[in-house]
Amino acid sequence: MLDFMDHVQNAFYGASHWNVDNSYGNLTATARALLDFQTPRGLRLHVSSLAAPNFATSYTIGSVGVVDGSVSYLYSSLPLLRSFKSAQLDLRHVINGYRHLGHLRKPDESRWWELWHNGKRVDCRDTLLYGRIFLPQSTLEALYLRRLSPTRQLRISAVSDSSLNNGGTILALLQNDVGKYSTEYMYSTDSALLGVRGLYNFGPDPRLGPTTPVTAREVTEAVQGRFSAGAELYYGMLNKSGGISTGLRFTTLPNHASFPYTMTLTLNPLMGNLSSTYSVKAGQNLALCSRFDFNFYSYESDLQVGCELWRRRSLTDVVWAVKKLRPDWERPAVATDDDVSGILKARLDQEWRIGLLWEGRIKDLLFTLGASLDLKKREQIFRAVGVELQYSS
């Protein structure tokens, strides 16, 4: 389940019209959501609040051998009007599941962001500031996020920790997204790393959309899937080493006639790693995923399978009560994901390691219950068991 601050950052992306899925870094996000979920360890409690539309706080305390915790603050110049109360929020916004990618949208016009007063421009760019300190380690995290234009964003993250080289590291990322393609340029103080990556989407260009509504509808109905290709190149100037990777993705779009699915293929030629994934929404409540990794230098391979099962709220009692009060009542249309009450996730690899996760809501609390098992170690099958509770107001 997403941390409260991650949820707020996603709300900032949505309010500022930034598409986080149109990035090479999120090419395999669907498979990662189904297979790479983290199982909690021990007991951890999160208490958070959106004190104002521009300001949020969060406190965490946990017990894994020793008592630890964190304190974090967030400021957004863009008011966030979505409900963040744990008793009211939509679970789809905080639970990572199968990702339904939509049609690419045309970027906002630059003039829409202009604000004039007495003949002078007085508009400012939306900014998000975030800081978090971990106790008792005194490790500090910081994030500076700024929307430079409708198609450009600057993201600077930093970590201060005495255990790291030079006492910490800074990562700067300049992102460009015009819909049809996206590019990212990065620099990290760790090894003076320079990198560039990009993603290109085949098919219609959203910047050159049809002018008439009829033609636009016909084009939308005709495009039921999207094929994307991307690559990444990075080089560390201090350690004189670099890397390269490339990837492909095909995903169905919302107007696809049959079940949604996503396929990806990534390759790292220097390391010899090849990875393929297939994710499918097999039903309204069920999603399945598989990932096969192969190294053509060592001939080693790995196979993982996983699934997620969504639990829906029962409307039987509510329907009966309303019908008794209003004989002429007609049941309202309910969206396919509007009645979500929880989710069960499971994964299994070829070494018989199992991960289980159950996420949902009890009253005003969000909960995450997880366990890691190793069936080959009969004397100690349970590797880790944990519970996380979140409350936000």
Rank of each mutant, 00 (worst) to 15 (best):
L375R: 06
T211D: 11
S76R: 01
L89F: 01
N96Y: 02
N166M: 05
S16F: 03
I61L: 10
S72I: 05
L208D: 15
G370F: 02
L129W: 03
G355K: 02
A321M: 12
L265Y: 14
P332V: 06
F134H: 13
N54T: 14
N201W: 03
V20H: 02
F37A: 05
A52V: 07
A142S: 13
W18N: 00
Q380G: 07
R82Q: 12
L357T: 04
R249T: 00
A11P: 03
F259C: 04
L101T: 00
E184F: 04
D21G: 12
V122R: 06
I156S: 04
F55L: 14
P206K: 03
Y299F: 15
E300I: 02
S160F: 06
Y59T: 09
Y73Q: 09
D3G: 14
W116G: 03
R152C: 07
M5R: 00
Q224G: 10
N19S: 12
L148K: 09
T57G: 14
V305T: 10
S188N: 12
F367G: 02
Y181R: 12
V8K: 02
Q153M: 11
V318S: 13
Y297R: 06
T189W: 05
C124T: 15
L286R: 07
L274E: 12
V223H: 07
F84K: 00
E218K: 15
S86H: 00
T151C: 03
N268D: 14
D349L: 06
L89D: 03
T316I: 09
E221Q: 15
G42M: 09
A52K: 10
D126M: 04
D126V: 00
F367Y: 12
T189S: 13
L348W: 11
E184C: 05
P210T: 01
K324F: 08
R32S: 13
D21S: 15
D364L: 11
A52F: 08
G25S: 15
